[in-house]
Protein backbone atom coordinates (compact mmCIF):
# COMPACT_ATOMS: atom_id res chain seq x y z
CA UNK A 1 0.00 0.00 0.00
CA UNK A 2 1.15 3.50 -0.73
CA UNK A 3 1.84 5.15 2.62
CA UNK A 4 1.58 8.69 1.29
CA UNK A 5 -1.49 10.76 0.64
CA UNK A 6 0.25 12.61 -2.19
CA UNK A 7 -1.18 11.77 -5.61
CA UNK A 8 1.21 12.39 -8.46
CA UNK A 9 -1.21 13.99 -10.91
CA UNK A 10 -0.75 16.84 -13.27
CA UNK A 11 -3.47 19.34 -12.44
CA UNK A 12 -3.34 23.08 -12.04
CA UNK A 13 -3.72 22.61 -8.28
CA UNK A 14 -0.59 20.43 -8.22
CA UNK A 15 1.29 23.04 -10.19
CA UNK A 16 0.49 25.82 -7.73
CA UNK A 17 3.35 26.95 -5.51
CA UNK A 18 3.18 25.27 -2.05
CA UNK A 19 3.08 28.71 -0.46
CA UNK A 20 -0.02 29.53 -2.49
CA UNK A 21 -1.58 26.29 -1.36
CA UNK A 22 -0.76 27.05 2.26
CA UNK A 23 -2.45 30.40 1.80
CA UNK A 24 -5.50 28.75 0.24
CA UNK A 25 -5.61 26.22 3.06
CA UNK A 26 -5.58 28.95 5.70
CA UNK A 27 -8.25 30.76 3.70
CA UNK A 28 -10.36 27.60 3.63
CA UNK A 29 -10.10 27.37 7.41
CA UNK A 30 -11.46 30.92 7.63
CA UNK A 31 -14.16 30.15 5.09
CA UNK A 32 -15.58 27.23 7.05
CA UNK A 33 -15.85 29.44 10.13
CA UNK A 34 -18.01 32.13 8.56
CA UNK A 35 -21.46 30.55 8.52
CA UNK A 36 -23.62 28.87 11.10
CA UNK A 37 -26.48 27.96 8.81
CA UNK A 38 -26.01 24.39 7.54
CA UNK A 39 -27.31 25.32 4.11
CA UNK A 40 -24.62 27.95 3.69
CA UNK A 41 -22.07 25.55 5.14
CA UNK A 42 -23.15 23.04 2.53
CA UNK A 43 -22.36 25.60 -0.15
CA UNK A 44 -18.91 26.14 1.35
CA UNK A 45 -18.34 22.38 1.40
CA UNK A 46 -19.43 22.23 -2.24
CA UNK A 47 -16.80 24.85 -3.13
CA UNK A 48 -14.10 22.84 -1.32
CA UNK A 49 -15.20 19.59 -2.94
CA UNK A 50 -15.22 21.22 -6.36
CA UNK A 51 -11.64 22.30 -5.75
CA UNK A 52 -10.80 18.71 -4.76
CA UNK A 53 -12.46 17.52 -7.95
CA UNK A 54 -10.28 19.87 -9.99
CA UNK A 55 -7.24 18.47 -8.17
CA UNK A 56 -8.39 14.92 -9.02
CA UNK A 57 -7.89 13.86 -5.42
CA UNK A 58 -11.39 12.79 -4.39
CA UNK A 59 -10.32 9.11 -4.43
CA UNK A 60 -8.21 9.86 -1.35
CA UNK A 61 -11.41 10.65 0.56
CA UNK A 62 -12.27 6.95 0.37
CA UNK A 63 -9.48 6.38 2.86
CA UNK A 64 -11.07 8.58 5.49
CA UNK A 65 -14.78 8.46 4.76
CA UNK A 66 -15.36 6.37 7.85
CA UNK A 67 -13.65 8.90 10.10
CA UNK A 68 -15.62 11.72 8.47
CA UNK A 69 -18.92 9.92 9.02
CA UNK A 70 -18.05 9.10 12.63
CA UNK A 71 -17.07 12.68 13.40
CA UNK A 72 -20.22 14.03 11.75
CA UNK A 73 -22.54 11.67 13.59
CA UNK A 74 -20.89 12.34 16.95
CA UNK A 75 -20.91 16.10 16.42
CA UNK A 76 -24.54 16.26 15.41
CA UNK A 77 -25.53 14.03 18.31
CA UNK A 78 -23.57 15.85 20.98
CA UNK A 79 -24.74 19.32 19.91
CA UNK A 80 -28.32 18.14 19.63
CA UNK A 81 -28.18 16.82 23.15
CA UNK A 82 -26.18 19.55 24.88
CA UNK A 83 -27.21 22.64 22.94
CA UNK A 84 -30.62 24.19 23.34
CA UNK A 85 -32.94 26.11 21.04
CA UNK A 86 -36.51 27.36 20.80
CA UNK A 87 -38.34 24.91 18.58
CA UNK A 88 -38.75 21.51 20.25
CA UNK A 89 -38.70 18.52 17.92
CA UNK A 90 -38.96 15.45 20.14
CA UNK A 91 -37.64 14.47 23.58
CA UNK A 92 -35.00 17.04 24.41
CA UNK A 93 -34.02 17.72 20.80
CA UNK A 94 -34.64 21.15 19.38
CA UNK A 95 -34.50 22.22 15.76
CA UNK A 96 -31.87 24.90 16.33
CA UNK A 97 -29.43 22.71 18.20
CA UNK A 98 -29.80 20.03 15.53
CA UNK A 99 -29.07 22.59 12.81
CA UNK A 100 -26.17 23.96 14.78
CA UNK A 101 -24.73 20.45 15.16
CA UNK A 102 -25.08 19.94 11.42
CA UNK A 103 -23.29 23.20 10.70
CA UNK A 104 -20.42 22.33 13.03
CA UNK A 105 -20.14 18.84 11.52
CA UNK A 106 -19.95 20.36 8.03
CA UNK A 107 -17.37 22.82 9.31
CA UNK A 108 -15.11 20.05 10.63
CA UNK A 109 -15.58 17.90 7.53
CA UNK A 110 -14.85 20.89 5.30
CA UNK A 111 -11.64 21.69 7.19
CA UNK A 112 -10.45 18.07 7.05
CA UNK A 113 -11.16 17.80 3.33
CA UNK A 114 -9.33 21.07 2.69
CA UNK A 115 -6.35 19.65 4.57
CA UNK A 116 -6.58 16.44 2.52
CA UNK A 117 -6.57 18.43 -0.71
CA UNK A 118 -3.41 20.18 0.44
CA UNK A 119 -1.64 16.93 1.37
CA UNK A 120 -2.83 15.14 -1.78
CA UNK A 121 -1.44 17.78 -4.08
CA UNK A 122 1.73 18.90 -2.30
CA UNK A 123 4.88 16.82 -1.90
CA UNK A 124 6.48 16.58 1.52
CA UNK A 125 9.57 18.25 0.12
CA UNK A 126 7.46 21.06 -1.31
CA UNK A 127 5.90 21.64 2.08
CA UNK A 128 9.35 21.74 3.69
CA UNK A 129 10.84 23.99 1.01
CA UNK A 130 7.77 26.23 1.07
CA UNK A 131 8.05 26.63 4.83
CA UNK A 132 11.76 27.43 4.50
CA UNK A 133 10.99 30.06 1.89
CA UNK A 134 8.52 31.56 4.36
CA UNK A 135 11.34 31.97 6.84
CA UNK A 136 10.87 28.85 8.95
CA UNK A 137 14.23 27.18 9.91
CA UNK A 138 15.02 24.14 7.74
CA UNK A 139 15.29 21.73 10.66
CA UNK A 140 11.81 22.63 11.81
CA UNK A 141 10.38 22.43 8.29
CA UNK A 142 12.03 19.03 7.84
CA UNK A 143 10.56 17.84 11.14
CA UNK A 144 7.08 18.82 9.95
CA UNK A 145 7.43 16.90 6.71
CA UNK A 146 8.89 13.89 8.56
CA UNK A 147 5.93 13.86 10.94
CA UNK A 148 3.58 13.86 7.95
CA UNK A 149 5.52 10.93 6.50
CA UNK A 150 5.57 8.98 9.75
CA UNK A 151 1.81 8.79 10.25
CA UNK A 152 1.02 6.58 7.24
CA UNK A 153 4.11 4.44 7.87
CA UNK A 154 2.98 3.76 11.40
CA UNK A 155 -0.49 2.91 10.12
CA UNK A 156 1.00 0.33 7.74
CA UNK A 157 3.09 -1.27 10.51
CA UNK A 158 0.03 -1.27 12.72
CA UNK A 159 -1.94 -3.21 10.15
CA UNK A 160 0.74 -5.95 9.94
CA UNK A 161 0.90 -6.15 13.72
CA UNK A 162 -2.88 -6.38 13.88
CA UNK A 163 -2.76 -9.41 11.58
CA UNK A 164 -0.01 -11.04 13.65
CA UNK A 165 -1.98 -10.69 16.89
CA UNK A 166 -5.26 -11.76 15.34
CA UNK A 167 -3.49 -14.90 14.16
CA UNK A 168 -2.69 -15.56 17.82
CA UNK A 169 -6.34 -15.32 18.76
CA UNK A 170 -6.69 -11.65 19.70
CA UNK A 171 -10.28 -10.57 19.17
CA UNK A 172 -10.65 -6.81 19.14
CA UNK A 173 -14.35 -6.82 18.46
CA UNK A 174 -15.79 -8.20 21.68
CA UNK A 175 -15.95 -7.04 25.28
CA UNK A 176 -16.89 -3.81 27.02
CA UNK A 177 -15.10 -0.53 26.50
CA UNK A 178 -12.41 -1.05 29.14
CA UNK A 179 -11.67 -4.58 27.94
CA UNK A 180 -11.40 -3.29 24.40
CA UNK A 181 -8.94 -0.60 25.37
CA UNK A 182 -6.83 -3.13 27.23
CA UNK A 183 -6.85 -5.37 24.19
CA UNK A 184 -4.95 -2.71 22.29
CA UNK A 185 -1.83 -3.18 24.42
CA UNK A 186 -0.57 -6.08 22.24
CA UNK A 187 -0.90 -3.75 19.24
CA UNK A 188 0.47 -0.55 20.71
CA UNK A 189 3.68 -1.89 22.24
CA UNK A 190 4.99 -3.56 19.05
CA UNK A 191 3.99 -0.49 17.02
CA UNK A 192 5.89 1.67 19.47
CA UNK A 193 8.98 -0.55 19.52
CA UNK A 194 9.09 -0.98 15.72
CA UNK A 195 8.67 2.74 15.18
CA UNK A 196 11.48 3.60 17.55
CA UNK A 197 13.75 1.06 15.87
CA UNK A 198 13.10 2.33 12.37
CA UNK A 199 13.34 5.95 13.51
CA UNK A 200 16.78 5.12 14.84
CA UNK A 201 17.92 3.79 11.46
CA UNK A 202 16.29 6.79 9.84
CA UNK A 203 18.28 9.24 11.93
CA UNK A 204 21.51 7.35 11.24
CA UNK A 205 20.75 7.51 7.53
CA UNK A 206 20.10 11.24 7.84
CA UNK A 207 23.43 11.82 9.58
CA UNK A 208 25.17 9.67 6.99
CA UNK A 209 23.80 11.84 4.23
CA UNK A 210 25.11 14.98 5.83
CA UNK A 211 21.85 16.29 7.28
CA UNK A 212 22.68 19.57 8.99
CA UNK A 213 26.30 19.40 7.81
CA UNK A 214 26.41 23.11 7.13
CA UNK A 215 24.20 26.07 7.94
CA UNK A 216 23.16 26.51 4.34
CA UNK A 217 21.92 23.94 1.91
CA UNK A 218 20.80 23.78 -1.70
CA UNK A 219 17.19 23.16 -2.66
CA UNK A 220 16.71 21.21 -5.85
CA UNK A 221 13.03 22.04 -5.88
CA UNK A 222 12.60 25.52 -7.23
CA UNK A 223 9.57 27.44 -6.16
CA UNK A 224 8.15 30.29 -8.17
CA UNK A 225 5.10 32.37 -7.52
CA UNK A 226 3.72 32.68 -11.03
CA UNK A 227 0.81 34.53 -12.54
CA UNK A 228 -1.25 31.43 -12.00
CA UNK A 229 -0.56 31.59 -8.26
CA UNK A 230 -1.47 35.25 -8.03
CA UNK A 231 -4.64 34.62 -9.98
CA UNK A 232 -5.63 31.73 -7.69
CA UNK A 233 -5.02 33.81 -4.58
CA UNK A 234 -6.93 36.83 -5.91
CA UNK A 235 -9.86 34.67 -6.99
CA UNK A 236 -9.95 32.99 -3.65
CA UNK A 237 -9.76 36.29 -1.79
CA UNK A 238 -12.75 37.48 -3.81
CA UNK A 239 -14.72 34.37 -2.82
CA UNK A 240 -13.73 34.90 0.80
CA UNK A 241 -14.66 38.57 0.70
CA UNK A 242 -18.01 37.79 -0.88
CA UNK A 243 -18.69 35.14 1.73
CA UNK A 244 -17.86 37.59 4.52
CA UNK A 245 -20.00 40.31 2.95
CA UNK A 246 -22.99 37.98 2.77
CA UNK A 247 -22.51 37.03 6.39
CA UNK A 248 -22.14 40.67 7.52
CA UNK A 249 -25.28 41.51 5.58
CA UNK A 250 -27.03 39.21 8.02
CA UNK A 251 -27.36 35.98 6.09
CA UNK A 252 -26.12 32.54 6.98
CA UNK A 253 -26.44 32.86 10.75
CA UNK A 254 -28.53 30.71 13.03
CA UNK A 255 -31.27 32.32 15.13
CA UNK A 256 -32.46 31.02 18.41
CA UNK A 257 -29.57 28.77 19.36
CA UNK A 258 -28.12 28.98 22.86
CA UNK A 259 -25.52 26.76 24.43
Amino acid sequence: MNPYLYLDRDTFVHRLDPRTKMFLLLGAFVLVFIYLNPLYQLAVLAVILFFGYLAKMLVNLKRIWFILVMISVMTVLLWSIFGSGETPLFLFFELESLLYGLAIALRIVGAIIAGMIFLSTTRNEEIATGLVKLGIPYRFAFAVSTALRLVPTIAATGSTIGQAQRSRGLDLESGNIIQRIRKNVPLLIPVFVSTIRSTNVFSMALESKGFGAGKERTYVLELHITRRDVLAMVLFLLVLAAALAIRLAGYGGLEGFTR
Binding site: T157, T160, I161, A164, Q165, R168, V185, P186, L188, I189, P190, V193, S194, R197
Partner: peptide
Amino acid sequence: QNPDHQIF
Protein backbone atom coordinates in the same frame (compact mmCIF):
# COMPACT_ATOMS: atom_id res chain seq x y z
CA GLN B 1 8.42 -12.72 9.63
CA ASN B 2 9.42 -10.06 12.13
CA PRO B 3 9.17 -11.20 15.77
CA ASP B 4 9.10 -7.55 16.79
CA HIS B 5 5.70 -7.25 15.17
CA GLN B 6 4.17 -9.42 17.85
CA ILE B 7 6.24 -9.33 21.04
CA PHE B 8 4.78 -7.03 23.69
